[in-house]
Design a protein around this nucleic acid. Sequence first.
DNA 1: GATGGCATACTAGTATGCAAGTTGCCGCGA
DNA 2: TCGCGGCAACTTGCATACTAGTATGCCATC
Lengths: 231, 231
Amino acid sequence: MTDSPTSSAPTDIRGPRLHGVYDALRAAVLSGEIRPGEGISETRVAARYGVSRTPVREAFRRLADEGFLRIVPQVGTFVAPIQLGAVSDSQFIRETLECRTVRLAAERAAAADVASLTRLLDSHRAVMSPDRHSEFFALDEATHAELARIAGRPAVWDLLVAVKAQLDRVRFLSLHSEGWAAKIVGEHQSIVDRVAARDPDGAEEAMRAHLRTVFAAVDEIARTNSHFFET
Amino acid sequence: MTDSPTSSAPTDIRGPRLHGVYDALRAAVLSGEIRPGEGISETRVAARYGVSRTPVREAFRRLADEGFLRIVPQVGTFVAPIQLGAVSDSQFIRETLECRTVRLAAERAAAADVASLTRLLDSHRAVMSPDRHSEFFALDEATHAELARIAGRPAVWDLLVAVKAQLDRVRFLSLHSEGWAAKIVGEHQSIVDRVAARDPDGAEEAMRAHLRTVFAAVDEIARTNSHFFET
DNA sequence: GATGGCATACTAGTATGCAAGTTGCCGCGA
DNA sequence: TCGCGGCAACTTGCATACTAGTATGCCATC
């Protein structure tokens, strides 16, 4: 038993089998390929992916912790319905934390930070066409992550990634309307402008407006897809 | 190891074996019975608790997700050092969310809510003697949870319970000084007073002052126990 | 004596068999 | 036709055997 503490950094490099199953299932639930209420079984998933039940069990476990699955002992495992209450809580938590971090970012941003944000915005504008949706989404996330980094709180974004999960499930339910991408990028531009101007109040307000746009879309989707939800 | 501060809020009714191992290990890490850097193995833990490796593995994985353990594949599992960065992030997140919720609580509190808070304060005063430390701790938590409930955001407290984990590890390292309990209860009283007065600004300020007190204690403990920490 | 390579003893990851429990179908009887 | 009892087929939880990879200490070699 070595008492040597923590010599190696890489902690999350579990077996590729686990990650493969986990990623595939997560994507399937997020995209709606497997629908809320649908039952899945360890045995069937294991057979389908050509692995044993053990890594599947761990993937199930993890997804259940994230709120994607509901494991009922001796009965089965089911895709969890999207809980409107959980979505609302996600919104609240996200708005509270991101408004605070963007304020900090505006106070601390160096020239290099502003340049980095501007680069992200340029990349973002380059992928606004509907067929590059996944790239657009990734850059959206990257922008928010960068703001957290500039604020000196990268871990806050890590937390939000987990909290946002239920929100993202809703987002995946809809193809966004025509002007959506432009609207998002425009709001990001406003935020970056206020950060560049070292204007905390303005940055917070711009962020709040941005998130309210996103949340409004989520509510709209929830209304038009009520069969996926649970009060 | 009496009662862990929060025995894992999630509503998970899995087998008793898993929970037994999980609770025991969590308490052992939190209390410092197993020290940071120390290695533990699935096999030995399984033998010690008279179960197989499977439930132990699940407990390990969960504890690793919470930041208590670090699993290094093919090498071993170790108690994670307390990361000062993670503690700082916990503080930041807690302050941000709790200041917001207490503000909401002050806006929404009904007479019954104030009465409930007052009851909690009375109970709290009754367990201020040092030999009732665990009861004092539980009531501290209950008060914060109640504030979140009044704010209409009970889930925020659930999140904070997880986020606070690293903070609690630090707290367990020290026996509190003489006037500590009185100081805490006094600050809670101030918060409740401002909530009862429907004064959001005052409530937020009182909460901020309270958390700063707690955080200052954490920093002090971190300084005097630096061997448990990792920068 | 210092050093490089190899055997050994550990680790976690995976596979699989068994146990305990629930659900739902299906046949039987009223 | 309706209701009920029992069985069968599923589920996950747990135990155990096996695989693959790593750290370590011994031993031969220089």
